[in-house]
């Protein structure tokens, strides 16, 4: 027997898909901006490949930033699964879950039924790291985007030193998002296979399932 539990709010699912899709666009256009792989000798061609790619990058950048604002809001005001206290490994409950998850993921000791509905603490921690990386990405991005705004200029210089350093860090962090996405998708499939709680469908429907002994 399975019992259905609402787990993720609509806002969280919205965040997730804004985040995921904007990252795809940002990575592709980011690579293009770094090294525009098309070249042309057409003069006055009425086409602006570089301008367009940058434009798409900036639009996706705004979507990405909005997504992060939503997630930060949910860390504080979301439902129980979404709040940061459900994840931070500072309580006994969370530390135990972290340890159990590590053993479970390394096939040492399979954990049985979940003790929680939301993220396991290991996954939740990588999400926190990713949100942090996203904030750095946003700061460096806006510093490059608004070179003449005193606000971004001041903060950009204070954090990164100069625009080239911010660009470099922006580029390196891109690899975190690529690698994270790969591991994230794999772990979701793995969990879906291991435990019939419906992790994958939960990010579409918002519902998770628990196994009740009938």
């Amino acid at each position: 027997m399975y019992e259905k539990h609402p787990c993720w709010s609509i806002l969280l699912r919205l965040f997730h898909w804004m985040f995921a899709l904007s990252i795809v666009v940002l990575v592709v256009t980011g690579f293009y901006v770094n090294s525009p792989w098309t070249n042309t000798m057409l003069e006055s061609s009425q086409s602006w490949p570089m301008a367009w790619m940058r434009y798409l990058h900036f639009v996706a950048g705004y979507v990405f930033s909005a997504a992060i604002i939503i997630r930060l809001f949910l860390y504080i005001f979301g439902n129980q699964q979404e709040r940061i206290w459900d994840i931070l490994p500072v309580t006994r409950r969370n530390l135990r879950n972290l340890w159990k998850t590590l053993l479970h993921y390394s096939y040492i000791k399979e954990a049985g039924q979940h003790d929680r509905l939301g993220h396991n603490v290991l996954a939740g921690l990588t999400y926190i790291v990713t949100v942090f990386a996203a904030i750095v990405q946003i700061c460096s991005g806006f510093y490059m985007l608004y070179p003449e705004a005193a606000f971004w200029e001041g903060w950009g210089v204070a954090i990164f030193g100069n625009q080239q350093s911010s660009r470099y860090i922006h580029h390196l962090l891109m690899w975190w998002f690529i690698i994270f996405a790969m591991i994230h998708v794999y772990m979701c499939i793995w969990n879906d296979v291991k435990r019939p709680e419906g992790v994958i469908s939960s990010i579409f429907t918002g519902d998770k399932f628990t196994h009740t002994k009938a």
Binding site: P36, T38, N39, T40, M41, L42, E43, S44, S45, S47, W48, P49, M50, A51
Partner: peptide, 17 residues
């Protein structure tokens, strides 16, 4: 830059242009 015309290598035809 905006229209996607870049020098690939110093001295190439794009550079001359």
């Amino acid at each position: 830059f905006d229209e996607g015309r870049f020098v690939e290598q110093f001295g190439d035809e794009f550079h001359k242009a």
